[in-house]
Computed example of a mutant assay.
Amino acid sequence: MKNFLSLIMLVFLLFQPPTAEAQQVHVLSEKIQFTGKIDDIQRKSVILQNTSDEKKEYIMKFMRGQIGSSQDISVCIGDTCLDPRKDISKIKVTLEPNEIFTDLYIEFKLGITETKGTFDLHFSNTADLRDVFIIEGVYETFAPKDDEAVNHRDISFGSVYPNPSNRIAQIDYQIKNPNANIKLLINSFIGNPIEELTLSPQQKTVLINVSDFNPGVYFYTLMVNGKNIVTKKLVVKK
């Protein structure tokens, strides 16, 4: 009887479908969300955890979802970025035993039209196809108001927000020409210079600390190679 029960247990274990035990890498990040204006490029971090005591290698098997023709998506491991629509076989992640991996990023260009959708990136263990993990993403692109965006040949430049502001105001931008000399000038209502900021091609947002500004109306001016491109109003309140 004991041998019969042992045989039943063995058969039961052999024919069990893959369960969470087969999944040895977990995605610790929540669903990746990309929300922004037309032509925005955003980069999000994905954190993985290898819960096994063995070194694991995963390769991307396929991508599922709606990605428009004007949108771009890249999977970046460190400084190496690859297009999952073209270079899928080259996208590999190697995890050491019990490692929490933080060097994986998804970069997404939101495209040229208002739209939204989802996508999934599926990875599989090269040594065990049952061992998989999935990165889930959602995106939404919206058009800026007519008075928000400035599209110059050297820079795309938004409007300040929040406005009015009492602590930190910020402006989103994207430099198209990294060789251009681009500055942001802050002036008082009567034209006195308050602050001068240099915009870096490596950044997408400039922050303006207005916590020490007196309440009132200020103006910020975008300068490209010494030329005034646009001047807009910033209101500071307490």
Rank of each mutant, 00 (worst) to 15 (best):
P97N: 05
I91A: 04
I106N: 02
D53A: 12
D79S: 12
Q66P: 03
S124M: 08
K86P: 02
E57N: 11
V93F: 00
D72K: 11
S89H: 10
E99Y: 09
N98A: 13
K86F: 11
R130H: 14
S89A: 12
D72S: 14
K55G: 12
V46T: 04
K90G: 06
V75G: 00
E107Q: 14
T113E: 15
S69M: 11
I73Q: 01
C81W: 04
E140I: 08
S124F: 05
Y105H: 11
L110M: 08
E54N: 11
K86Y: 14
L121A: 04
Y139N: 04
I47K: 09
T126E: 13
I134C: 03
T115Q: 14
I88H: 08
Q49G: 03
D103R: 10
R64A: 10
R130F: 14
I67Y: 00
D131P: 03
D83G: 07
C81M: 10
V132P: 02
K109G: 15
S124W: 01
K56H: 08
S70F: 10
C76T: 09
L95T: 02
T118P: 01
K116I: 00
E136P: 00
I134R: 08
E136K: 05
N98R: 15
T80P: 00
L82H: 06
I134Q: 07
E140Q: 15
V46R: 01
V138K: 06
D53N: 15
T102S: 11
Q49K: 13
V132D: 07
V138S: 13
V132T: 15
V138I: 14
S124I: 06
D83M: 09
R130T: 14
G111F: 06
F123T: 03
I91K: 02
R85M: 13
P97T: 08
I100Y: 04
V75S: 00
T126P: 01
T126H: 07
F133E: 06
M63D: 10
G137N: 05
S124C: 05
S52N: 08
I91V: 09
D103L: 03
K116T: 07
V75D: 00
P84Q: 08
G117T: 03
I59V: 15
F108T: 00
I73S: 01
I77T: 12
E136N: 08
V93N: 01
G68D: 11
F101W: 07
Y105K: 10
E107G: 04
I73M: 12
K109S: 15
R130Y: 12
S89C: 02
K109H: 14
I106K: 05
F108Y: 09
Y105E: 12
I59A: 13
I47Q: 08
V138R: 09
K56L: 15
C81V: 13
N50C: 06
L95E: 05
Q49H: 14
L104R: 00
P84Y: 08
K61I: 03
A127W: 08
T118H: 13
E57A: 10
